[in-house]
Amino acid sequence: MDWSFIGEHVPDYLGGAAVTLRFGLYGVACSLLLGLVCCLLRYFRVPVLRRIAGGYIELARNTPLLVQLFFLYAGLPRVGVRLSAEACAVIGLTFLGGAYMAEAFRSGLEAVDKSQREAGECIGLTRAQNIRYVLLPQALATAAPALFANVIFLIKETSMFSVLAMMDLMNVADTLRTSGGRTVEVLFMLIVAYLIILLPVSLIATWVERRLRYAGFGDQHTV
């Protein structure tokens, strides 16, 4: 292992990590939003829109991100829709992630007893108030593990951004590999970089899940 090579290229990897993290987090944030909206459209059976949300979820969950990105980046400009690489990255990741987040939210909401929704209605809460104060807090507690798993999944998927010619971690490593030939060092640093990014996310996830478990809601189902 050539440590001086590694030391020399740490700044490159820092730059790549910044791109990976930045666009990964944009994608995660947009995915959470899109996922929540889609999930609520389906939960409250909003006519037409829930069908669109359902169709979108099926499309996004059953196609690879790589193909989605090529379509956005190399296909769409040919019919006049020109997007920057960064826009493609965020749109692609959101398209994929929104569907996965919607499914996570759905499983959380489904785990909330139907009678909880009715109890909220019975004290005269509006639909929005019912979601905010009664349904969502409980759904989030159940959905937390799946949501965190999706966050890790999406950050990993950012490795595909290299096909958009974005200098993310993957592309930094690939460029160094093809130019310098120090494959072992290059891949070693790549692994370490992803570990440094994903380990904290995983630790936070474990911590949050444990707290939620301790705050467990207990014996609601004694009936």
């Binding site: 007893d113 004290i123 005269g124 809601f217 009936v223």
Partner: peptide, 18 residues
């Protein structure tokens, strides 16, 4: 919801918000 504000209801399963 405006009507329900004027009618109270209690269920067999309590349904307190856990």
């Amino acid at each position: 919801h405006l009507i329900r504000q004027r009618i109270g209801m209690v269920f067999q399963s309590y349904d307190l918000f856990p």
